[in-house]
Design a protein around this nucleic acid. Sequence first.
DNA 1: ATGTGTTATCGTCAATCGACGATTAACGAT
DNA 2: ATCGTTAATCGTCGATTGACGATAACACAT
Lengths: 114, 114
Amino acid sequence: MSAPSDCCPPETPQAVDLAADAVDGEAADQELAAFAKAIGHPVRVRILRMLARKEAKMCSHIVDELPLAQSTVSEHLRILRSVGLVQANESGPRVSYCIVPFKLKRLKALLEAM
Amino acid sequence: MSAPSDCCPPETPQAVDLAADAVDGEAADQELAAFAKAIGHPVRVRILRMLARKEAKMCSHIVDELPLAQSTVSEHLRILRSVGLVQANESGPRVSYCIVPFKLKRLKALLEAM
DNA sequence: ATGTGTTATCGTCAATCGACGATTAACGAT
DNA sequence: ATCGTTAATCGTCGATTGACGATAACACAT
């Protein structure tokens, strides 16, 4: 039986770098800026929230809940994926999206260090 | 004698709204997105950090530490001010900038709720 | 009153963003 | 093999961003 989150594989190995990576310095500046830029749009915040609540959603589900074209939603998802905050699980033509928890934690850690 | 932070007035009255305002919903989405957009640039993250460490800085100090024109830095500061994360204290032609702590807390709270 | 140091604003330019429709690709079912 | 369904990609358009130099505004000294 699939648990609430049948999207994200149990836990990615990179989850280790959470506490390891520096939280300031030039690299951290760019990392935080990239995260922030990705969520710097109301639609993407909303999508993130949708994914955070219901554990996995198909792109079409998201399109249904937003007054935007499918291509636009797909682009927003691409941006969220590009910084690793969101992950896609493809099974057939269907693609389930879900949040990548440790990336979100990393973002929170970066911001918390400010 | 001026304490480390002689910029920000003791505490703004709006500090109350920290716990009061909703942390999700459409308004919160837009609020978080606006914050994120503002810090969605490496230079602005760096400026924020400079202001977070040394409590108050003049614009010219920031210009000195960055490879950017004065007008460019001024624009970045304007963006940070526009979302309330940074505050300006004018005394003569000199303008001291500093972080607005409760705004930063609000941002962290919005993100933490994700 | 003039000058000096400081910051904001204006105008410009190339680059990026956000949205859309149209098309393509990928897979399952018939 | 063809058809539906789903999602990604492409091309386009107007709007916004990021950077700069030049200029204006401001307050303090002289």
